[in-house]
Nucleic acid binder design. Sequence first.
DNA 1: CGTGAGATTGAGAATTCTCAAAGGTCGTGG
DNA 2: CCACGACCTTTGAGAATTCTCAATCTCACG
Lengths: 220, 220
Amino acid sequence: VLRVEHCPADAEIVAEGVEQTVSRVLIEGWAGRTKSLVSGKRQVTELHLAGDFVDLHSVSLRRLDHSIVALTPCRTALFPHEALRAMIDRSPRLARALWASTLRDAAAHRQWLAVLGQLPAIGQIAHLLCEIEARLAALGRVRDGGFELPLTQEDVADCLAITPVHVNRMVQQLRSDGLIEWRRGRMTLLDLDRLRRLAEFDPAYLGLQPPRGIKALVQA
Amino acid sequence: VLRVEHCPADAEIVAEGVEQTVSRVLIEGWAGRTKSLVSGKRQVTELHLAGDFVDLHSVSLRRLDHSIVALTPCRTALFPHEALRAMIDRSPRLARALWASTLRDAAAHRQWLAVLGQLPAIGQIAHLLCEIEARLAALGRVRDGGFELPLTQEDVADCLAITPVHVNRMVQQLRSDGLIEWRRGRMTLLDLDRLRRLAEFDPAYLGLQPPRGIKALVQA
DNA sequence: CGTGAGATTGAGAATTCTCAAAGGTCGTGG
DNA sequence: CCACGACCTTTGAGAATTCTCAATCTCACG
């Protein structure tokens, strides 16, 4: 009884503040967890790829304090809260797995906080690219240091709280430094070592060993 | 069998990467969750007050990816992981309560991300003050809009990723705008409404209705 | 009273932003 | 097959915010 929903690009997969009765796992596409302030500015606080539970919170809190936006067309699988709660109460192991998933989210948020606060714009961009590379690599979606990157420079700007214009200039610098190649939705990291050093990147916070989302659920 | 530990100011309550066999609840004092990058710069990602579980993560992950630093002298109560795990496995309700606690942490991190990214320095400072006020108020530690604030301007700078010098200038502006009074460790918010508007502050993310930390544990 | 941590001030520099315009690329319709 | 429009990306110039570095000041405390 696995329902699947489609969501076009730029639409909300889950809207802020609306009561939910299901949680969603991203099956395909890229999504962003975006928090808006009163002034209308928006901040992407986390990127989601296929396999991620995008709104596990809602099992416990019912409504989200932020929204989940499709950055590309997305497909999501729906899991009714009722069923999830029953499973959680029966299986301490599943409960722990889901808790661990939330812990990883929190760790990722902390890393982003440190990156946003402590790195210059170019390092922030490098860090975001390193994170994406590491996560895609874990999913087997990196070939020869390159991968499909359907994000726009404006999306990157929303993640890092930098101006799109400035993102562009820094991307150009990464290019001219021979660190990346980025054309037509394909990103290639030409010198991962140097890029990681620039980004002060350590993949530990991603907790990539145990698979996330669906798989954790299936295992339990 | 409740062990209590003391920790002097500026010392680590929990060190990054060291395997833990207990989790700690802050009983007294102010602590900060600090993440350091390779370059040595440090970012405080969350403030902790009395009643907060400071390293609940370690129950599941064993070691922290960041450290917990005492900003003032602190006292913490120790809960052995073994006992916690046993309790969690026996009580789905406790498991959910602890999970909810992690969810609140993550929500706070997201809020900080939005604040760091989207607000100018003065708004960030205002936001931090509003958060502290709201949390202390929930603990009954606010009188006439004022409270004890043992943090230095440098601590504030570490939370918001601004320079101490710049914090100072913005604090002065808040003062001259008639928004705050801050002398000798006592902070008074003179115009909470205006301050909250400046900070785009909405206390919802704090999830203050249900008490945190110890109390949640005691209830279950 | 001296001392030291924290707060404050000043001046110049760096990073990042804003606004506005121009270039590219790609799919669609004629 | 070309022209058009939409959406990105890129470029330029000036301005704003924030940083750096260094010195001075304040005040609680021994």
